[in-house]
């Protein structure tokens, strides 16, 4: 089971220190064997998230230049981009060789520091799945070869509505589902259902929601039929990974 850190670009000018912390995490992941720079084909080693910080595409390019074999995934949400902007991102991602995309609908602006911002939600995650997997916008020029991308979608867990959404996403052709791990226990039924459909499944959890040290957390989920756990790094400097590296002298 792979543990994949997800980190968003900083919403400040401290890019240099952020980059330093990120490199420490990536190197630590490689040494610890939790994730790694040369992981299996198709599985990302690190997820870089676009929220309201520095443009993540630049960071993806930066890391691609620095680590030839680093498999980065680009995460973004539907709150911030309309279909025009998304097409632009897809073209850029293809150009720089990032093939793993993770999308969510995104936290509503009312729940962020930009409460008065107009949310976009031009298309939902299905809209992107239709663009990538069903050639929904086939009249557009310059975006041939959309099958280059692996699409992962973040979904909730535990309700009939989530289960139906997962079913519809699988039918639409998404490659991976990332199931929110918010309560004490992961939704085992959801995980097993997704695996039964031969799709990759990851759990998604914020590091602040992990109640134990990382190794204990990993052990407690070892029996799950999942491909990995994506852990959202909340503090770039002192996070669950750096604590793990220190404890294990990595």
């Amino acid at each position: 089971m792979r543990i994949i850190p997800q980190i968003e670009t900083p919403a400040s000018e401290s890019y240099a220190s952020f980059e330093g912390s990120l490199i420490k995490i990536i190197n630590g992941m490689k040494k610890s064997g939790l994730s790694g720079l040369d992981g299996p084909e198709g599985l990302p080693s690190v997820v870089l998230e676009q929220n309201f910080g520095i443009n993540t595409l630049i960071l993806c390019k930066d890391l691609k230049d620095r680590y030839k074999n680093l498999n980065t995934a680009y995460a973004f949400n539907m709150r911030d981009k309309n279909r025009i902007s998304i097409i632009s991102d897809l073209m850029t991602l293809k150009r720089i060789g990032v093939k793993d995309i993770i999308v969510s609908e995104g936290l509503h602006p009312l729940k962020t520091m930009f409460k008065a911002a107009k949310p976009v939600y031009d298309i939902d995650v299905f809209g992107l799945a239709l663009i990538l997997k069903r050639d929904f916008m086939n009249s557009l020029h310059g975006i041939d070869g959309l099958d280059f991308f692996n699409l992962g979608v973040v979904i909730g867990a535990s309700t009939l509505a989530d289960e139906l959404k997962a079913k519809k996403l699988i039918k639409t052709g998404v490659d991976r589902l990332i199931v929110n791990y918010t309560g004490e226990n992961p939704d085992v039924n959801m995980v097993n259902y997704i695996k039964s459909e031969n799709k990759e499944v990851f759990l998604y959890i914020k590091e602040s929601d992990i109640k134990y040290p990382l190794d204990d957390f990993i052990k407690s989920n070892e029996d799950l039929n999942i491909d990995g756990i994506i852990v959202k790094v909340v503090s770039e400097k002192s996070n669950i990974f750096t604590q793990y590296f220190e404890k294990n002298e990595i």
């Binding site: 969510s104 609908e105 995104g106 509503h108 009312l110 729940k111 299905f126 979904i155 909730g156 509505a161």
Partner: peptide
Amino acid sequence: PKGLLNGPCEGHDGVHCEVYEDSECVFMKS
């Protein structure tokens, strides 16, 4: 609040809407 068409967002708590915290997610109702 997100005007979604195809199912709930990932932000609900199993029952309630992420934004209208006292209301049921409209997809559960649908």
